[in-house]
Design a protein around this nucleic acid. Structure first.
Length: 474
DNA sequence: AATTCGTACAACCGCTCACGA
DNA sequence: CTCGTGAGCGGTTGTACGAAT
């Protein structure tokens, strides 16, 4: 079935290797005894494929090789056709509208390139994927967020609306959205909802695993490649997939809360290093607290090198909480210890009492929100640390501290000299709204605009952690 | 001029799902 | 129900090319 070939086939065939435009010697895999060519397509091959599709239509790609004399596997043919040969393909750079569309779609869908492509006529999933990956690197290098604040805030609102409305959004795309930055933090926001299921008309139960995940990530365990073991990928919907099905479609949710429900506290505790399986040492892990292992390139270059050992499978995409390598030092000076206190408070918060709906997926959010939450955790912890040295912080206290911090101490953290100063300021600086002129997604904008959004998000998030929630904030 | 680095793009690979026998 | 096959998706790698050193 596969057009994969043995190791010797890995070498790309150059176009001048062969006399025939269709067949190269010495390279390519085999299918039914036929040596299949790999590597760049020639114009002759393109012509054959185009001709074939004109005659037989798309599909049945494996028959191409049989019927057309093209020495390419069906997979390769399909890809070539889809990405380069099919009509109405838009070539050239993405327009500004397209770029903005991609950003918004990614904020909503995550790495659902094919679905995103469906929203961008003439664009291929591969194109979008490449664009996004490049964009990640570029923006990360520039210290910019992946998402403009409007996008993230909109994603938050939409996600919350979906949950309040009981809309099932178990599509993997949503999950990916949450993973979009390598963290799975956005669930934390919905942990807040979860903690208030009795308040809101409908707040689906959300596996505690998500909080655990976030916390693991937050404690530098993003390298653990934590994947909820029962968070199965929903079956792909090939046909008649409603656009934005993640928001309104009847997408199956395949994980059961019950599967998460047990050991919740244990997971959280372990996630916070209280009994961390991968790192029994519960001493502060300052540099790792934000996923920045010393010597790791994870956040420093916007990519994960396969050559990096023992980090496990990690997401390509980065947290939008982007810090340059020079930031590591400042982060390293901050103590993550208060995080445990906050978690204690969180763990102590009453468990959700609402009716469990295992058919409801974990809501997701944008990657930027990851950063916001991450940041809020940091800030909250810092706040708690400043307000009290006690390790036992009640939710109310934590909440109070949070509020105080949000309202009165923000400027303190804008201090670039503060260990968190850059964190806060960078967050503001990074989360820049789209300019009115729309000249560039990367343009900076006044802090105040986003500050309001951030404030709101912080409150929502932090209050959720403390086990209290006031829907009025929504 | 040679080398290094970053970027953009094309293609491959592994996995999963749908579907029919 | 199982198995084989086709197809699609997402992640990753390879390559070309231009800019910087």
């Amino acid at each position: 079935m596969s057009c994969s070939s043995n190791g010797s086939d890995d070498m790309m065939l150059s176009n001048d290797q062969t006399d025939s435009p269709l067949m190269d010697e010495g390279g390519g895999g085999t299918a039914r005894g036929v040596i299949l060519k790999k590597g760049p397509w020639t114009s002759a091959e393109d012509a054959i494929l185009i001709d074939y599709v004109k005659k037989h239509g798309e599909g049945n790609w494996n028959a191409v090789q049989k019927n057309s004399g093209l020495f390419r596997c069906g997979k390769s043919c399909r890809l070539r056709w889809a990405n380069h040969l099919r009509p109405n393909l838009k070539k050239g750079a993405f327009t500004q509208e397209e770029e903005q569309m991609i950003v918004e779609l990614h904020a909503k869908m995550g790495n659902k390139w094919a679905r995103m492509a469906a929203h961008l006529p003439g664009r291929t999933d591969n194109e979008i994927k490449n664009y996004w990956n490049t964009r990640i690197k570029r923006r990360q290098r520039a210290g910019l967020p992946l998402y403009p604040p409007e996008v993230s805030f909109q994603a938050l609102q939409e996600s919350q609306c979906q949950n309040i409305n009981g809309i099932n959004s178990g599509d993997k795309g949503h999950h990916d959205l949450l993973q979009a930055n390598g963290y799975e933090i956005p669930d934390v926001v919905f942990d807040s909802l979860k903690a208030n299921q009795g308040v809101l008309p409908y707040v689906p139960d959300i596996p505690d695993i998500t909080a655990s995940t976030m916390l693991m990530k937050g404690l530098g365990s993003q390298y653990c490649s934590f994947v909820p073991p029962v968070m199965h990928r929903p079956k792909r919907l090939r046909e008649s997939v409603p656009l934005f099905s993640a928001y309104g479609g009847s997408v199956k949710n395949e994980f059961s809360f019950d599967q998460f429900h047990n050991d919740t506290s244990d997971k959280i505790a372990r996630s916070f290093g209280l009994s961390f399986p991968l790192d029994p040492d519960t001493t502060p892990k300052a540099p790792e607290s934000f996923g920045m292992l010393q010597g790791s390139h994870t956040l420093s270059n916007g990519n994960f090198s396969a050559s990096k050992p023992n980090l496990g499978a990690v997401k390509l995409e980065l947290p939008s909480l982007q810090y340059t390598e020079t930031d590591l030092g400042s982060w390293g000076t901050s103590s993550p210890q208060p995080l445990l206190e906050t978690v204690d408070a969180f763990i102590q918060s009453p468990p959700p009492t609402g009716t469990l709906d295992s058919g409801c997926p974990s809501p997701r959010n944008s990657g930027l929100l990851d950063a916001l939450i991450h940041e809020s955790n940091t800030l909250k912890n810092h706040s708690s640390d400043k307000s009290s040295n006690s390790s036992s912080v009640t939710p109310d206290v934590a909440d109070s501290c949070t509020r105080n911090f949000c309202e009165t101490e923000w400027e303190d953290y804008s201090d670039p000299l503060s260990p968190l100063g850059h964190s806060a300021t960078s967050l503001f600086n990074e989360c820049t709204p789209l300019s009115a002129s729309g000249s560039s997604l990367d343009e900076q904008a006044p802090v105040e605009t986003f500050g309001k959004h951030l404030h709101l998000i912080l409150i929502i998030t932090l209050k959720g952690h403390s086990g209290t929630f006031e829907s009025s904030f929504l």
